[in-house]
Write a protein that binds this DNA or RNA. Structure first.
Lengths: 115, 115
DNA sequence: TCATTTGTTACTAAATTGTAGAGTAAATAA
DNA sequence: TTATTTACTCTACAATTTAGTAACAAATGA
């Protein structure tokens, strides 16, 4: 696998980082993944995926400050890089293109305008 | 990983089977993958992915007849099962939902109506 | 100080994806 | 009719991604 490949789990995590913004730290991301996908995940899988994507240059991270909540230790906040955005966009465009070629889905695409 | 997970490569291959219809046999699928994605793949990776998805019940296959071309041996033709379609659809819906929540992409979604 | 909560890091296991190459059958050329 | 070329399938195993689990760290509250 070349260094620019984006796995399915990676892609979803990357999108969640974008969606969560300031709140994009591992624990929250894993939680959000479960809520949105209805699928279980583990904090470990989330962490290794985040680290891998940071190494690939799709994400960057920095430690935030501790909050004054019980157990509120410092969080590592992730943000998408320009490269990460580009890769996400390419992935989306490619998929849109395939869906539009598949008769069973092509018609459904129109209804998307309603989103 | 549970038996219903769909990897990124798997998903694209599944879509290509749908797009190719009668022409959905391993060699052609791999060829089409390279054309459409601009990314290289290998026939071996394609085979193992097709086999795995058949085992999962997303695809079924049967041998076609030999064609009258030089080297035109029998092909194994793949078709998507109902389960395969459902899984594809779920994957698509999930992604659409995420994209619509990500500000950087949400606006682009509207322009999709033009597809 | 000690238990509890919210986090991270590190390590191991399982599933997906990639590589290499052998094997088969039909069409053509000699 | 034998050899060669072309179009394909299939297997074994290696590399990468994803999952699971355990151990550690810092802040709060008793």
């Amino acid at each position: 696998m070349k260094e620019t490949r984006l796995g399915e789990f990676e892609e979803v995590i990357l999108l969640l980082v974008g969606i969560l913004g300031e709140e994009a730290y591992a624990f929250k991301i894993a939680e959000e993944y479960e809520t949105q996908s209805g699928r279980a995940t583990s904090i470990g899988a989330t962490h290794s995926t985040l680290d891998r994507m940071e190494a690939k240059g799709f994400l960057k991270s920095e430690m935030g400050n501790a909050t004054a909540e019980r157990g509120g230790r410092r969080k590592r906040i992730f943000t998408i890089t320009a490269l990460g955005k580009r890769v996400l966009k390419e992935s989306r465009d490619f998929r849109m293109s395939l869906w539009s070629q598949y008769p069973a889905f092509a018609d459904k695409l129109n209804y998307l305008g309603a989103l």
